[in-house]
Amino acid sequence: MAKGTGIVVAAVVIALVLANHEDDDGGAATGSASGGGNASAAQFAASRQAMLRGEPTVAWSRLGMARTAKDASRRDTDCASHSYGQVRRYLRRVPCRVMDRVLFTVDDKGGNTIAIAVAWVRFDTPAAAREFKRIDDTWGTGQVRPLPGSTLGLPDIRLSGQHYASRREGSLTVVAEAEEVADGELDDAFLDEIAGVAVLLPH
């Protein structure tokens, strides 16, 4: 899968918070706050903390954003048929128990719209989830297919995984992607950070 680059921990406090919620695989990718979204590292830290508390509306508001009314979701038990590449081959060998996917958008006051795709993939064992995360985190290995933009009445959105985050909790692996719906002022580092917030979305 294509993965975001230049990802670093935004703040020590977030590393400590995530350490309490994730295992030794590491947690959500956390890019450096910057750029077009005009959000600071402190704002991203507050956003992640709100997500960890189970308050997504508050989390997006910390970044000056709001989730739009439209969203799409789907549950599947045949994960392999909704993936491709090495990820698909792995899921054929080691089937998941269930996969939940959601696609939604968030808007900011500047008129920018970001499409966000999150997938929760649950396995029978932590070891299976760990290996899935390792493969999915690796560049060029394929991915779980996000729900298409047409489900939200949006133009085709290229969710290539460039702005990507993942985490694991036991037998559950969560992956998230973010992409601007139309070319605008949001830079790559900002979108990396958005994925790092989205991967903490309560399930």
Rank of each mutant, 00 (worst) to 15 (best):
W139S: 08
A66P: 00
F44R: 06
A69K: 02
N20Y: 11
R89G: 15
R75W: 01
W120I: 07
A29T: 12
F123Q: 00
W120H: 06
A50C: 08
L18R: 12
S40Y: 06
R145K: 15
V181S: 07
A11S: 11
G170Y: 07
V87N: 06
R97N: 02
R92L: 11
S61R: 05
S61C: 08
V174S: 04
L201V: 00
G153E: 12
G184E: 05
A45D: 12
R130Y: 05
L63W: 02
H21G: 02
A33H: 04
F190Y: 13
K3F: 09
K133C: 06
M1C: 09
L147E: 00
A165N: 06
G142Q: 07
R167A: 13
D76A: 03
F132G: 06
A198E: 06
K70W: 02
I116Q: 01
E55V: 11
A117Y: 01
V181P: 00
P56N: 13
S83L: 07
A128C: 14
A195S: 13
A28F: 00
C96G: 03
I114G: 01
V58N: 14
Y90I: 04
P148V: 07
V181Y: 02
E180K: 09
D23P: 00
R74H: 03
E169T: 08
D192V: 01
I135P: 07
H163K: 14
I7W: 14
G26L: 09
T68G: 07
L152D: 01
V118Q: 02
A29R: 13
R97T: 08
I157S: 09
R122H: 01
G111C: 05
A189S: 09
M99A: 03
G27V: 08
E22Q: 15
T30C: 10
